[in-house]
C-alpha cells in the first residue's frame, strides 16, 4: 500500500516537473494562471490569512481614519503598487503578476486584523513585502485605518487629503521607531531583520536560506570574526553597527547601500553576525569589546 502511494506520488511529481520544465506551464508575468489555479490560490490564501490574522490583537481604540497624515504614510509606502482612490499605481506596477490588490475593495471585504497582517508579514511570491521591523507598529495600524476608511472616501476627498498633507514624509520617521533600541542586541531578531532588509540579495548568510553561489558582497558567515569591516575599519561592535547603518560614512566608495536601518535593528543584526561567527559576544553589549 505504502509503496503504491509513494510510486503514485513520484509519478505525479515527475508529471508536474515535465509539465513545467517542458514549457507547458506559462511562468511569465504576461499571462495569469488558469482560472481554476487562480481561484484555488485565492481560497487557500484567504483561509490561511483568516486563521493567522486572529493572532494579532487589534488596538482597542482602532477606528477607520482618513486624515492627511495617514494619506502621506500611504503615499510613501503603498500607492506605488496599489494606487489609491482615483490614482493609478506607478508605471512599473501595472505589469506585476499578480496585479496588486485594489485596497478600496480590500477595505470593504477584509477586517482590520487581516489588512494589518498583510502589511506586517507580506505575502510570498505576490510582490507584497513584509514591513515588519521597517515600519513602526503605530504606522502599520495607521495605514490599516486608512484602508478601512477607503470605502467611504471619494477620489475627490482623497485628493484633498493629499493636498493637505506633507508631500514627502521624512523617510526615517517611521523606520527609526520600528525597532526598540536595546543596549543588548537580539541575534534572533537580527536574523529576521536581515531577511526583511534584503541582505540575502547580495550576501550568503548562515541560517538564512538563499543562493549558495552568490558573490555580490562577501559571505557573512565569518564577518563577525574578520579583523576588518569592509576591509577598512577594525571590527568592533560599534563599527559594525555604524557600518550597517551608514556604509558610506565608513567607506565613501563602498558598493554597500544605505538601507535605512535603525540603530536598534543594526545592533540586532550585529549580534547575529557575531553569533554565527562564534566570536563570543553574540549579545552586542553597550560597551564595545574587541572581538579578537
Amino acid at each position: 500500500m505504502r509503496i503504491m502511494l509513494v510510486s503514485l506520488g513520484s509519478l505525479a511529481a515527475a508529471g508536474v516537473l515535465a509539465f513545467v520544465a517542458g514549457g507547458f506551464y506559462d511562468i511569465t508575468a504576461i499571462k495569469q494562471h488558469p482560472a481554476w489555479v487562480f481561484h484555488a490560490i485565492g481560497i487557500g490564501r484567504d483561509t490561511l490569512v483568516a486563521l493567522q490574522a486572529d493572532a494579532d490583537e487589534v488596538p482597542e481604540d482602532f477606528a477607520p481614519v482618513a486624515d492627511a497624515r495617514n494619506v502621506a504614510l500611504y503615499r510613501k509606502h503603498c500607492t506605488q503598487c496599489h494606487g489609491a482612490p482615483g490614482v493609478a499605481p506607478e508605471e512599473f506596477a501595472l505589469g506585476m503578476m499578480p496585479v496588486p490588490s485594489n485596497l478600496v475593495a480590500a477595505g470593504r471585504e477584509r477586517p482590520p486584523e487581516e489588512i494589518y497582517w498583510f502589511i506586517r508579514y507580506g505575502l510570498k511570491m505576490s510582490g507584497m513585502p513584509a514591513w515588519s521591523m521597517r515600519m513602526s507598529e503605530a504606522d502599520m495600524w495607521r495605514i490599516t485605518a486608512l484602508v478601512e476608511a477607503f470605502p467611504t472616501l471619494s477620489p475627490e476627498a482623497y485628493a484633498e487629503l493629499v493636498e493637505a498633507g506633507p508631500q514627502q514624509l521624512d523617510s526615517m520617521t517611521s523606520v527609526a521607531e520600528a525597532g526598540p533600541f536595546t543596549p543588548f542586541g537580539n541575534p534572533e531578531r537580527g536574523r529576521k531583520a536581515m531577511q526583511v532588509h534584503a541582505c540575502p540579495q547580495c550576501h550568503m548568510i548562515e541560517g538564512i536560506v538563499g543562493r549558495s553561489d552568490l558573490h555580490v558582497g562577501p559571505p557573512l558567515d565569518d564577518a563577525g570574526a574578520r579583523k576588518y569591516i569592509a576591509g577598512v575599519v577594525p571590527n568592533t561592535p560599534e563599527n559594525m553597527i555604524r557600518w550597517i547603518m551608514h556604509p558610506q560614512e565608513v567607506d565613501p566608495l563602498s558598493a554597500m547601500p544605505d538601507l535605512g536601518v535603525s540603530e536598534g535593528i543594526a545592533r540586532d543584526m550585529a549580534a547575529y553576525l557575531y553569533a554565527i561567527a562564534g566570536t563570543g559576544h553574540a549579545s552586542v553589549g553597550a560597551a564595545p569589546v574587541d572581538p579578537r
Binding site: H215, G217, P218, K227, G231, D251, A255
Partner: peptide, 19 residues
C-alpha cells in the same frame, strides 16, 4: 586568514574590494 575576505570565488565576485 580571516583578516580580509575569502578569495575562494574570485571569478564570480561582482566587486573588487567592495568598490
Amino acid at each position: 586568514g580571516v583578516t580580509g575576505p575569502p578569495l575562494t570565488a574570485m571569478s564570480r565576485q561582482v566587486y573588487v574590494a567592495g568598490v
